[in-house]
Design a protein around this nucleic acid. Structure first.
Length: 314
RNA sequence: GCCCGGGUAGCUCAGGGGUAGAGCAGCGGAUUGAAAAUCCGCGUGUCGGUGGUUCAAAUCCGCCCCCGGGCA
């Protein structure tokens, strides 16, 4: 079995191009680790690989979910496990690439095994934390699961709701699940992680330019399609960068220019959070600051060859 | 050339003798099934330049530079 290659990098850092290059060089197959590129309906707006790009190497877990579905890290992990094991079985190198740090982390460290929560319980929990309910929902959480509660603040509605829904559905506190994790899909020594760390100002420029390009390639059509389906605005797909603002434009609330500015701003802020994630969650992954495709792929190839050789000798 | 108005944070601007403050942008951080999510924290500054008045100047005065607008 050959080791897997994991590549993390902020949005717009050129991961797609790099993954294709690496797939060719390492005889690998690309596995998506981006929470938004899994949605079929979001193509342009998430900068998902084009059909042409996908035809140059095997791609997995791209655009395979409907926008009405609610993806999650756990679900992604189950899908990724299956795909990665299959790639390994065929003697190829899994190249897991994406900007969702949580997904990559789950892959190498496992995730708590928590039963699926029924949809009505999820909406019940979400209703509890809505608006003026935040404080009382938090107080309730402190009673039933003080361990989780003490790590959260009342305003963090999303995490409070998560803790509540687990309690409501299983009768056990979320913290009790956190003691046990699933075994990692990729154990120690079975993978190599690389972090792309381009200069921030150059990345921000690219983000801005890329969004302008998306608008010309039909981002608005994608937004309109979702708009016409009248989906729940809380669905993950409805929160892809830019989507809330394009929808707001389609409702006639803001100008197209304002929508574009907000979309770019959100994307820049996300990139900033990704940098934080890299430096604190993946402190030991080698960094590649160069934005040059060739430099990147050569560095990765050299690093990978070493551990791949070690694997072959085993 | 003359007359007004203005030059303060990256941007838009407030303040008006005791070395400065808002919004936006930005920056730092957290992160266990919504993670492109959610949440916490932080003013980042030769107050256009220069000389003067003053114990003390971003603030008052002189000169210069720049940007608006008006008159020629």
């Amino acid at each position: 079995m050959r080791p897997a290659l994991l590549i993390h990098g902020p949005t717009a850092s050129g991961k797609t191009q790099l993954s294709i290059q690496m797939a060719k060089k390492l005889d690998g197959e690309i596995v998506n680790a981006d929470s938004m590129q899994v949605y079929r309906d979001l193509h342009v707006i998430t900068a998902r690989p084009t059909d042409e790009e996908m035809s140059t190497a095997p791609h997995h877990l791209f655009g395979y979910k409907d926008a009405a579905e609610r993806g999650s890290a756990g679900e992604w992990l189950r899908d990724a496990r299956e795909v990665i094991l299959d790639i390994q079985k065929r003697g190829k190198v899994p190249i897991v690439i994406g900007g969702t740090g949580l997904h990559l982390l789950a892959l190498i460290e496992g995730l708590s095994e928590i039963p699926p929560i029924p949809e009505e319980t999820r909406s019940e929990a979400r209703a509890m934390v809505q608006k003026d309910g935040a404080q009382s929902a938090y107080e309730y959480l402190m009673k039933i699961d003080p361990d989780t509660g003490s790590k959260l603040v009342p305003n963090d509605r999303q995490r409070v709701a998560r803790a509540l829904e687990v309690w409501l559905a299983t009768g056990k506190p979320l913290s009790s699940y956190h003691e046990n994790k699933t075994p990692p899909v990729l154990g120690a020594g079975e993978w190599m992680g690389i972090a792309l760390t381009p200069p921030r100002n150059r990345l921000y420029n690219r983000i801005d330019r890329r969004f302008a390009g998306m608008m010309m390639e039909g981002a608005m059509d994608e937004a309109r399609a979702l708009f016409e389906r009248n989906l729940d605005p809380l669905l993950p797909a409805m929160k892809a960068h830019g989507m809330p603002w394009l929808l707001s434009y389609l409702r006639g609330e803001i100008s197209a220019e304002a929508a574009a500015d907000f979309a770019k701003r959100d994307t820049r802020r996300y990139a900033k959070r990704q940098f934080t994630w890299i430096s604190h969650q993946f402190p030991f992954w080698p960094r590649i600051p160069s934005m040059e495709l060739d430099v990147r792929s050569r560095v990765i190839h050299a690093l990978f060859k070493e551990i791949d050789g070690a694997f072959l000798k085993r």
